[in-house]
Amino acid sequence: MPEATTDGGDGVQIDLISGQRMEGKTSMEKVRMILDGVHEGNIVILEEGLTPDEESKLIEVTMTEINPEEFNGIEIETYPRPSSDSPSFFGRLMGKDGPDTKLTVIGPADRIETLHKDETLISALVSRD
């Protein structure tokens, strides 16, 4: 998996999960993979996002795993591919420019202070502990 890790301990780990890696997985496997990452405090970035049904399951499973003082849930933002012809920034980041890029950023709610989004930018402020 393409993965950017900062030096252990108090760093912030970002999991960039390619569409290929998600291919052939069931919705529950995808949800599990995302939440396992988030539980470890990672920021999970999905190259291809989730279907509405998978999003609905992600919300449902997230709710069942919220536990006061341990896990507050998730922040999630999706980034629809702009309709312009130019290869998208995130497409280039992932080394390709897929047809249906719906980049999705998911992280633990208690570590992401703001997850701002506009037409051309997703901005996350991540705290270290």
Binding site: I59, I66, P68, E69, N72, G73, I74, E75, I76, A109
Partner: peptide, 8 residues
């Protein structure tokens, strides 16, 4: 009300 996070 639907949300993705709940903080007591």
């Amino acid at each position: 009300g639907v949300t993705t996070k709940v903080d007591y």
